[in-house]
Simulated scan of single mutants.
Amino acid sequence: MSQLQFIPRPLVRLNQWIILLSVLLTWITANAWVLLLPLMANLWGVLVGVNPIIKVGKVFLRKPLSTYIPEDKQQQKFNSGIASFCLGIGWLSYMLHWQLVGHLFTAMVAIASSIAIAGFCIGCFVQFQWKQWQYKRAQKV
């Protein structure tokens, strides 16, 4: 059986909600260890190709995977890379008691997750702009 090259949208949304709720819980409780759940899950997804949050969420889907709106797997990997970077810097900053830096990086992830839940993917926009820049640069050579 070939591996799917897309992720069903409900699973992408689940991951976005976990990221957002983890950041909010970190802010409310001042416990940065909460960030390790989405950080490790997304980092594992980037490095190994399997996000445990998405893997567990898949068990709860009731319809065949092909019936859900597909999200590009490579795009989600790119987005997870950005989220992992920001969550990692945020977590490390909190551990070093650099609250302002921690708040800044976790706020970026929380805002991006919120906007993605609402329907606009900032990571997709960033990757598109990056590819446009690469294309234009290649044309000049």
Rank of each mutant, 00 (worst) to 15 (best):
S2D: 12
Q5N: 15
Q5C: 02
Q5K: 13
F6A: 00
F6V: 00
P8Q: 04
R9A: 13
P10T: 11
P10R: 00
L11T: 04
L11F: 05
L11K: 01
V12D: 01
R13C: 10
N15D: 15
N15W: 05
Q16G: 12
Q16H: 10
I18E: 13
I19R: 08
I19S: 05
L21P: 01
S22A: 14
V23C: 12
T26Q: 05
T29H: 04
A30V: 09
A30N: 09
N31K: 11
N31T: 08
A32D: 07
L35G: 00
L37R: 03
L37C: 04
P38R: 03
L39H: 00
L39V: 01
M40N: 01
M40T: 09
A41G: 09
N42W: 09
L43M: 09
W44C: 10
G45P: 09
L47G: 11
L47W: 08
L47T: 11
G49M: 04
G49Y: 11
G49C: 03
V50F: 10
I53C: 05
I53T: 14
I53R: 08
I54M: 06
K55D: 14
K55I: 05
G57M: 02
V59T: 14
L61R: 07
L61H: 11
R62G: 14
K63R: 15
L65G: 04
L65R: 07
S66A: 14
Y68Q: 11
I69V: 14
I69H: 15
E71F: 10
E71M: 12
D72Y: 12
K73D: 07
K73G: 00
Q75W: 08
Q76F: 15
Q76A: 11
K77R: 11
K77M: 06
F78Q: 03
F78A: 01
F78S: 03
N79T: 12
S80G: 04
A83H: 08
C86Q: 07
L87N: 00
G88S: 09
G88K: 04
G90S: 15
W91V: 05
L92T: 02
L92W: 03
S93P: 08
L96H: 03
V101L: 15
L104I: 15
L104N: 01
F105Q: 01
T106F: 02
A107Y: 08
M108Q: 00
M108N: 03
M108E: 04
V109T: 14
A110G: 15
I111W: 12
A112M: 14
S113C: 15
S114N: 02
I115T: 12
A116D: 09
I117M: 02
A118H: 12
F120P: 08
I122Q: 00
G123I: 06
G123H: 02
C124F: 05
V126I: 14
Q127F: 13
Q127I: 11
F128P: 01
W130C: 06
Q132I: 07
Q132H: 10
Q134D: 04
K136H: 03
Q139M: 12
Q139R: 08
Q139A: 10
K140Y: 11
V141C: 10
V141D: 09
